[in-house]
Nucleic acid binder design. Structure first.
Length: 220
DNA sequence: GTTGAGCGTT
């Protein structure tokens, strides 16, 4: 009702927007060399917005390093915001200046500098547990279509996604490793000794060297 | 070595 639904500037409640304390002498953004941030947090995104859309919009200001749209781990529903990381902080600032307040699909975007407060899986787990006061049904699949919701920009890496040859190498026994990490321990209290996520990590612990060798050979 | 279950979700 005041024209803008977000009023961080005048009197921030307490937290975000700008930290009062700056305990990091080097820089609050973690960058050792530069204090200027390169990551932007885009808020008020549409639920059907895709990283590609953001890339098209924000890519005009400079080369993007990464785009990521967080979403609910269990339901897979987009959270309505995303991160756009630039290679140069100048581009990030420029993009923020230009895109902040822009209308995307009928929604006013809010672009701010993103902090490096990435939430850890453990935190997310607890947070999801007490979603509405009751335990959320986590026993379901973590995500119906979990996958890379992140989109890498082809500006600096052009890997050939052609190294997927585990079709023949896969065995019924190995297949179980590809199952959902939480299929057996939804609560994550018992078999949490090992990170279950690593089981299905794209980087096989042992076949990596080989894949790289092959990849190089294939590339040359 | 860097993440991807990423903070500011209507």
């Amino acid at each position: 009702m005041r024209g803008r639904s977000y009023d961080y500037s005048p009197s921030p409640p307490r937290g975000y927007g700008r930290r009062h304390r700056n305990p990091s002498p080097r820089g609050r953004y973690g960058s050792r060399g530069r204090d200027l941030p390169t990551s932007l947090l885009v808020r008020n995104l549409r639920h059907d917005c895709r990283p590609e859309d953001l890339r098209g919009l924000f890519g005009r200001f400079g080369p993007l390093k990464d785009i990521y749209l967080p979403r609910d781990y269990y339901t897979g529903e987009p959270r309505g915001f995303g991160f756009v990381q630039y290679l140069e902080s100048a581009d990030a600032a420029d993009a923020k200046h230009h895109m902040d307040g822009e209308i995307l699909l009928g929604r006013e975007l809010t672009v701010v500098f993103a902090e490096e407060n990435r939430k850890k899986p453990a935190e997310m787990r607890q947070r999801d547990r007490v979603r509405g006061g009751q335990y959320y049904d986590q026993r379901r699949s973590p995500s119906p279509h979990y996958g890379r919701s992140y989109s890498r920009s082809p500006v600096y890496y052009s890997p050939s996604p052609r190294r997927r040859h585990y079709s023949r190498s896969i065995s019924p026994r190995d297949r179980r490793y590809r199952l959902r990490p939480y299929s057996r321990s939804p609560h994550g209290s018992r078999s949490c000794s090992r990170s279950p996520v690593r089981s299905w990590s794209p980087y096989g612990s042992r076949s990596r060297s080989r894949s790289w060798s092959r990849s190089l050979e294939d590339s040359r």
